[in-house]
Design a protein around this nucleic acid. Structure first.
Length: 171
DNA sequence: GCCAACGTTGGC
DNA sequence: GCCAACGTTGGC
């Protein structure tokens, strides 16, 4: 199992370092545009990132994200997979309400309100890219070598992005 | 704890 | 639609 580091904490004891809280971390979050696109986020302004049912992705939202962290919004499972916009983490973690909703496809009978299994954060719109950056283009760039998104077999829908890669992609 | 079977993701 | 890759489940 790969482990991830949001790259935020400079000291081993982050809790003793108040400044660590103010350092932004960067993320990439995938969404199928048929289900929820960057235009949907632009329209809504803000949305709960519900429906995540993968433990690694959940752990990153629950344990590693901070309000203000910035997010590459990525369209997956579509004609042209691409980074299409920028968003921001807008809340701390809380229980994903869809896990308790019997009508939801994300309903989880093994979860309970006392011990919720799935957490989420809210995401808010920052901007849409004038020109999406297709996956195919990202793959061709030597300066993005090692990016989690580009690793073979990667299926995580949420992943950290290093500050270096962030600058190279948006710069 | 092992591991086969199954389900899901997501590019192509 | 195909299929590689990976996560989860459950029998043992």
């Amino acid at each position: 199992m790969a482990s991830f580091d949001a790259g935020r904490r400079d000291t081993p004891n982050a809790s003793a370092n108040a400044d660590a809280e103010t350092v932004l971390a960067y993320w990439l979050m995938k969404s199928e545009p048929d289900a929820y696109s960057i235009d949907d986020l632009m329209h809504d302004g803000r949305t709960p990132w519900d429906g995540i049912r993968n433990y690694q992705a959940r752990n990153m939202m629950r344990d590693d994200m901070r309000v203000g962290d910035e997010v590459l919004f990525y369209h997956s499972s579509c004609a042209e997979p691409a980074v299409v916009g920028v968003a921001r983490v807008a809340s701390g973690p809380y229980a994903d309400p869809t896990q308790f909703d019997r009508e939801s496809k994300y309903f989880d009978p093994k979860s309970s309100k006392d011990e919720p299994r799935w957490s989420l954060v809210d995401i808010e719109f920052i901007r849409k890219l004038d020109h999406p950056i297709p996956l195919a283009e990202l793959k061709e760039r030597p300066d993005l070598d090692g990016m989690t998104l580009l690793k073979r077999g990667n299926r995580l829908s949420i992943m950290p992005v290093s500050a270096e890669h962030w600058k190279r992609i948006l710069g």
